[in-house]
């Protein structure tokens, strides 16, 4: 029941002109004008041009794509890129999971040191880190010095030619991109849940498999997608350490700036764009589920 109070001059429900109520945050859209203009002009349009150009060239249509698939050397590069990205993602996950687990339980000085050891390489230029790997992995580098010096092998390893050196360096460069999302997922796991599981009689292995692992899965998938996307588009490390093994990004650069074959470079870039966009959309969904929508290597 509605209590109606009538006093002088107050007529409930009296018809008066309905004026639009004030709405909070209504005018905020105009804030987006400048950022979106820049983004359209220098991101959306250039990418659209890349896609358009991939269908042009001497023979318009799908010619570039047919060329990529039918030419064994380019097809091989695409497949090898995929294989490397998969390998790097898997290896990174295996190495990162225990590290993230330890850091998520660490406190005080240990936590600071561990985090610094993850974040310093994260923020060091890839060029610089790749240079470090050259010093270590080259034919007369540190690793071969140690291995030959200790008599383990007779001939120095050619790590910079067969792709293995490139993979070692890529795994290293990608580690923080996996550790950070894992950490942010693991920080969110309530330690009481594990205690509850152990009170209920689960041994540590069962606790891990049935409680901890499922709860860390959003972090695992987010990290995997992020590492996979980045690995697909890797340029610096393959160019310096890949030797004869090349990846898509290097091929695009060669086609574009050395061979001036822009249609082919655009087609390769379009393939890369479609793949990474699809993965990025998956990543966005995962981050939305992980909560807060904090993408890209943000730990707090």
């Amino acid at each position: 029941m509605t209590q109606v109070v009538n006093e002088a001059g107050f007529v409930p429900g009296a018809a008066r002109a309905w004026r639009k109520p004030w709405r909070p945050g209504r005018g905020n859209g105009f804030l987006l004008i400048a950022p979106l203009t820049l983004l359209c002009a220098l991101f959306v349009v250039p990418l659209a041009l890349v896609v358009v150009r991939s269908f042009s060239g001497p023979q318009p249509g799908l010619a570039q794509y047919i060329e990529i698939v039918s030419n064994p050397s380019t097809a091989w590069v695409v497949l090898y890129t995929f294989w490397t990205a998969l390998l790097v993602t898997a290896a990174t996950l295996l190495l990162s999971y225990p590290v993230a687990f330890t850091i998520s339980r660490a406190k005080g000085r240990l936590l600071t040191v561990c985090l610094a050891m993850v974040l310093i390489p994260f923020w060091t230029s890839t060029v610089i880190r790749t240079y470090g790997w050259i010093v270590i992995l080259q034919r007369r580098g540190i690793l071969n010095d140690i291995l030959v010096g200790s008599g383990l092998i007779d001939q120095p390893l050619r790590l910079m030619n067969d792709g293995s050196g490139m993979q070692i360096a890529m795994i290293h460069i990608m580690l923080p991109f996996m550790i950070l999302p894992l950490l942010s997922a693991m920080r969110g796991i309530d330690a009481n849940l594990m205690r509850a599981a152990s009170v209920l009689g689960a041994n540590p292995l069962r606790q891990f498999v049935h409680v901890y692992l499922p709860m860390s899965l959003p972090g695992v998938s987010a990290g995997c997608v992020l590492v996979f996307i980045s690995s697909l588009g890797f340029y610096i490390t393959p160019a310096l350490l890949g030797g004869q093994r090349t990846m898509i990004a290097v091929l695009i650069e060669q086609q574009a700036s050395r061979l001036l074959n822009w249609p082919l470079a655009s087609a390769l870039a379009t393939i890369l764009l479609v793949l990474t966009s699809a993965l990025f959309i998956i990543y966005e969904r995962l981050m939305a589920r992980l909560g807060g929508g904090k993408p890209v290597g943000e730990v707090q």
């Binding site: 041009l49 890349v50 996307i229 655009s266 870039a269 966009s277």
Partner: peptide
């Protein structure tokens, strides 16, 4: 959309921006 330029490989944007 705003985050995309950071995540997508820079090589794509590079060959897109070059002719522009």
């Amino acid at each position: 959309l705003i985050i995309a330029p950071l995540v997508l490989p820079q090589i794509i944007l590079a060959i897109g921006l070059f002719p522009v």
